[in-house]
Design a protein around this nucleic acid. Structure first.
Lengths: 233, 233
DNA sequence: TCAAAAGTGTTCTCTTTACACCCATGG
DNA sequence: CCATGGGTGTAAAGAGAACACTTTTGA
């Protein structure tokens, strides 16, 4: 049974952020190891006494000082037995989203102090290991989940103008959206509500009213075997 | 880095089969270990030199002499650090389907010779480890995939009467189906075709024509960003 | 001729699409 | 008063749901 011992278990996180109509992915510069100096996904080995989730959360904190507000398991990469040139490693990849409040990266010369940086999804460099492939899969997951789960809200501020939501969908899905139909559809779902907050004005044009995602209402609907799907012409 | 070494990696498979309007799951009786004599999912530790997929395939062969015709990764269980009472194990669970040709279990007194047996999904006993939870998740996955991917065909014979497909959907989704609407919808998708095979007669009633799933046609449609969703009233 | 399962069309309703003008503000 | 983005309704087409009788076979 000696063969069993030597498979190492890692976690990696694909963290998406959204700012100025652009989708970003969080990367860190590897400080040592076979890909020293190369950009990779934040992640690392799982410790004996921690759960997988704890491992990801810890790594995100250590490597980027970031707290995500959506996290789910994506896929476990372990079919290429040489994906790490040093030894056999399988990696459980996690898919995460941050909203603008958590977008800023902590400047931390203190702890692990690796460089962490946001990269536009259209501009991801060559990454270490099989991480480009992982990013691709995560991007795909984001696109499809967006159409049947309300995860877009985790990339926006708590209160947002409707146009932000429109833009997020059209940017991420890379499709044009009919503003009228989109608004009608989203509002018909019943879990996006106008707030009382005063309208905001961003420079020019008519001020926008603010909306928010009502999580409770969403879950209430869910338990009544409710299902939605957002598609466009 | 000593903590890292001691996490063991296992794979488990949830294999579904379908016979006589009933959905079955394949279980094996544990021969040793902490759950000796208890039913569990087929699976075992991943060897140093094999991919995850190879590990599942091998275990299915060894423990049940079975070859599946659909296999995909389901989820990786590693948040309960005591899921195996002996040591820390994470398990990559796979979701598999067999069609009637592969349904029979090999009688194998030779190799690993564990007892393998099909259990109706409605009649799963208490399993070892966290395997009841895994089965539940797989069952959920099967239900939802059935509505947007043509995986039902992997549970049927290559050629099948239309009523088999109807029954499969209504049994697995636990819903009544309007036969006329179902047939119209499926045939409108364009990848289920009537064969030239002579009708078959099963005892009583009008003989049924046989249909088959045209994989090539399905993939051709897929690449044209085709999407389907099967829902019922 | 009866029992059993297979095969088939139409209407109504609801959802989705396409499409263009006015409104509120700042400069 | 102009530029900029926000806000809104209606008609036509398509998809989904409801619904029942005829056909073919074996016994």
């Amino acid at each position: 049974m000696t063969e069993i011992k030597d498979i190492k278990v890692a976690v990696d996180a694909i963290v998406f952020g959204y700012q100025q109509n652009t989708l970003f992915v969080l990367l860190v510069k590897q400080k040592f190891g076979p890909f020293k100096g190369i950009w990779v996904l934040p992640g690392g080995f799982v410790l004996q006494q921690e759960s997988l989730i704890e491992a990801v959360t810890r790594e995100l904190q250590e490597e980027a000082g970031i707290k995500v507000n959506y996290l789910e398991q994506l896929y476990t990469f372990g079919d290429n037995i040489n994906r790490d040139p040093r030894f056999r490693v399988i990696s459980v990849a996690y898919f995460a989203l941050v909203n603008p409040d958590n977008f800023a990266l902590a400047q931390q010369n203190d702890t692990d102090a690796e460089e962490a940086q946001w990269f536009a999804i259209s501009n991801i460099p060559q990454l270490g290991y099989d991480h480009n492939q992982i990013v691709k899969m995560a991007h795909q997951r984001l696109k499809s989940k967006l159409t049947y789960q309300p995860i877009g809200f985790d990339l926006l501020a708590t209160e947002f103008p409707f146009s932000d939501l429109e833009n997020l969908y059209s940017v991420i899905l890379e499709q044009e959206i009919d503003r009228r139909n989109f608004r009608k559809k989203i509002l018909s779902l019943g879990f996006v509500e106008e707030t009382n907050a005063p309208s905001i004005n961003n420079g020019s044009g008519r001020p926008a009213r603010l909306f928010k995602f009502n999580k409770d209402k969403y879950y209430a609907l869910l338990s009544n075997s409710f299902h939605f799907e957002i598609k466009f012409a």
